[in-house]
């Protein structure tokens, strides 16, 4: 068990500081990223907030585990759905995301006050995952119709969405089963840290690509104004 604990601690520490990578990238490329709108801002805010969550994990968790896990799930859902909402262009799909999100928040409040809390809020996490998968499918189907002669992996959003998808789908069984048999899941819990770290790395790649995309846009704009240097 000490070995497992060490692995879990290492993975947790790596995860904790991996949340800082998007924040650092944002600070380095601030001038380029400030033009990219709210997607990068929301992801950076999410990363910073969750770094703080993990930094004070023990004290916050001890304070009230029920509130802590519920707010963790809710805030995570809000940031993910907000980022996806910004990426989706179709108006109807956007409306669907908003409606489902409102329903989810209502459900979360109701669940918080009515359901008996065990180790983790498995049901809300399960619903959160399914909703986010739905939004990801909506985004992919929309982007497939609109290829614009560009490979899908050249888009920054692809890495961000892939990161979210990997994290939520691979942690799905952990979150569901943790409510049933805490002890069996505990031994492998470090895997969720690895999946979340992968997500943070992919989000960082997405943010970096957003910054290089701004560079391309700037070049294109400068090309569209000919002979400006001659004025």
């Amino acid at each position: 068990m000490p070995n497992l604990l060490t692995i879990e601690t290492i993975c947790f520490e790596v995860l904790k500081y991996s949340f800082l990578v998007p924040v650092l990238l944002f600070l380095v490329f601030y001038n380029k990223l400030k033009l990219r709108g709210y997607v990068t801002f929301s992801l950076v805010a999410y990363s910073l907030l969750f770094f703080l969550f993990l930094f004070f994990d023990k004290s916050l968790s001890d304070l009230n585990r029920h509130i802590y896990t519920t707010s963790y799930t809710t805030i995570e859902y809000i940031f993910f759905s907000w980022a996806l909402l910004l990426m989706i262009e179709n108006k109807r799909a956007k409306q669907l995301v908003v409606i489902l999100s409102i329903l989810f928040i209502i459900f979360q409040v109701t669940y918080f006050f009515t359901a008996k809390f065990k180790t983790i809020d498995s049901v809300p996490i399960g619903i959160e995952s399914i909703l986010i998968f739905t939004y990801v499918i909506l985004l992919f189907s929309e982007q497939f119709k609109n290829t614009k002669n560009k490979y899908i992996y050249q888009n920054p959003w692809f890495f961000i969405v892939t990161g979210i998808l990997i994290y939520l789908s691979c942690s799905f069984f952990f979150n569901i089963l943790a409510g049933i048999d805490k002890e069996s899941v505990r031994g492998y819990w470090f895997l969720t840290y690895i999946f979340e770290t992968i997500k943070n790395i992919l989000v960082s790649i997405g943010i970096y690509l957003y910054s290089s995309k701004s560079k391309d846009d700037a070049k294109k704009n400068s090309r569209s104004i000919p002979y400006l240097d001659m004025i």
């Binding site: 691979c170 799905f172 952990f174 089963l177 048999d181 002890e183 069996s184 899941v185 492998y188």
Partner: peptide
């Protein structure tokens, strides 16, 4: 125990 672990690992 082991059954849940199996489900967990196979599912993941």
């Amino acid at each position: 125990g082991p059954s849940v672990s199996t489900v967990l690992l196979l599912g993941t």
